[in-house]
């Protein structure tokens, strides 16, 4: 059983607690700060960490992750640099599920096969490529399966059943349900139809379904935890990290603690 499966099956016994998934853009605020931030996330009970490889044109991202990506690229974060950083994290956290998130062009430039091989070597557990639909993912699937890297695809509120079936077939690890039509970024509220959509995905698969995009705080985590297997927090977390720069990360810890306590059905 890989780390992602282990994390979800470990939770299923714990009287309705759901997974808290944290996204970080590697290089924001710096590659050096990454181990400290991941340590803090783990200490506060984050169940899975997504590490974003910055891309020049992050189409699925809103202002926060765009700015973090641009910052990272200006500070010369490279794909190889991210893999090195991931290696460092893995040495410190043997059981933490780690997922890489990036766009298709850096993957394809690195070489899809090579990217999966390197991910396996660094003991990465999964990849998310938001601009790669399953219809176009043949190369990635062929390279990821033998490397035992999970491929996590995105389902949108506008995905009809026929597409959901495709997404479910291509996905391993979990399904990433996008809470709203739009890009990443903290929102004041989430659409109510999440419940119905998550249910219709769950009818098609036994894989865990986690919800991301737009989650800004404990209220939304609670809303998501009531219907899905996990909540993914990205932009709102980066905002708090950005505000804490130079002042230590105690506010980040407090923020994650509040999210974590909202992770119950």
């Amino acid at each position: 059983m890989n780390r992602i499966d282990a994390a979800f099956s470990g939770l299923s016994g714990k009287n309705g607690r759901k997974a808290l998934i944290a996204y970080l853009t590697v290089g924001f605020p710096s590659v050096r700060a990454l181990p400290e931030i991941v340590r803090l996330l783990v200490d506060e009970g984050v169940d899975l960490v997504e590490l974003g490889i910055p891309f020049s044109d992050p189409l699925a991202d809103g202002p926060t992750i765009q700015a973090a990506s641009q910052w990272a690229l200006e500070h010369r974060v490279t794909v190889r640099g991210v893999f090195d950083a991931v290696g460092g994290i893995r040495r410190r956290h043997q059981d933490l599920p780690l997922v890489l998130m990036t766009y298709y062009n850096p993957v394809s430039r690195f070489g899809v096969k090579e990217f999966c091989r390197e991910s396996a070597r660094r003991q990465v557990d999964g990849v998310i490529v938001p601009d790669l639909p399953p219809e176009e993912a043949g190369d990635l699937l062929r390279a990821a399966r033998p490397a035992r890297i999970d491929t996590i695809f995105l389902a949108a509120p506008t995905s009809p059943d026929s597409r959901l079936r495709r997404i479910v077939r291509a996905s391993t690890g979990f399904i990433y349900y996008v809470s709203l039509t739009g890009v990443t970024g903290a929102r004041a509220s989430l659409p109510p139809e999440i419940k119905a959509h998550v249910r219709s995905i769950k009818r098609l698969t036994d894989l865990p379904v986690c919800v991301g995009f737009g989650i800004s705080g404990p209220d939304q985590v609670r809303q998501v935890a009531a219907v899905a297997d996990g909540a993914i927090i990205g932009s709102a977390l980066l905002n708090v990290i950005g505000e804490s720069r130079g002042k230590g990360f105690s506010r980040v810890a407090a923020f994650v603690r509040r999210l974590r306590s909202a992770c119950h059905a």
């Binding site: 020049s56 044109d57 690229l73 794909v79 062009n105 394809s108 430039r109 601009d131």
Partner: peptide, 19 residues
């Protein structure tokens, strides 16, 4: 060769796939 805006075609990019 690269992928931008949903198109696989020629692309001005660096060795890391940044446009």
């Amino acid at each position: 060769v690269g992928v931008l805006h949903g198109t696989r075609s020629f692309l001005l990019q660096d060795s890391d796939g940044q446009v």
